[in-house]
């Protein structure tokens, strides 16, 4: 498969039905994308395909062929959301954080509280009760 991963062209020889999550973690070495449930419920494996958030545990590798894929590593540590998640307590244990940040990136700039709540409904966090995540997103600059 060929695809653009975090802005760089990549070419891989993998089984077309291999989970994109495993391709990213095992074949590309990007372990920032996490697995929490393997059934599309927790959102820890959220990445962007063509800017849209998906659960990479439910996406076969073939589906990303020719697509633009972005993982947490693709934000280069410079996205305002990343700093905000540290400052405002949006990250506690951190395991949901990469997926949560990617889902938040997909919300675009200045989402309303209601847009955040609906947009993150597929991303589970067991640590924060979500309040600090809302604060992190709303205060990101």
């Amino acid at each position: 498969m060929r695809f653009t991963l975090n802005g760089k062209r990549a070419r891989l020889d993998v089984h077309p039905m291999k989970r994109l999550l495993d391709v990213l973690r095992e074949d590309c070495g990007f372990t920032g994308t996490k697995e929490g449930c393997g059934e599309g419920e927790c959102g820890a494996c959220t990445i962007l395909i063509e800017g849209m958030p998906v659960n990479s545990c439910l996406v076969p590798a073939a589906h990303a062929d020719g697509a633009r894929v972005t993982t947490i590593e693709g934000l280069d540590g410079r996205h305002p959301l990343q700093r905000a998640f540290v400052d405002h307590g949006g990250a506690q244990c951190g395991i949901c954080t990469p997926g949560m940040i990617m889902a938040a990136v997909a919300l675009g700039r200045k989402p309303t509280l209601e847009q955040i709540r609906v947009g993150l409904a597929g991303n589970l966090c067991r640590c924060t009760g979500y309040s600090a995540i809302y604060r992190s997103i709303r205060r990101a600059r």
């Binding site: 920032g32 990343q82 540290v86 400052d87 990250a91 951190g94 954080t97």
Partner: peptide, 21 residues
């Protein structure tokens, strides 16, 4: 004061290594 948490950066960049990583 709410100082910057020690491992915060690793957790928001995907650099933090969990066991399966």
């Amino acid at each position: 004061r709410s100082v910057v948490r020690k491992e915060g950066r690793g957790k928001v960049t995907g650099a933090a290594r969990y066991i399966d990583d």
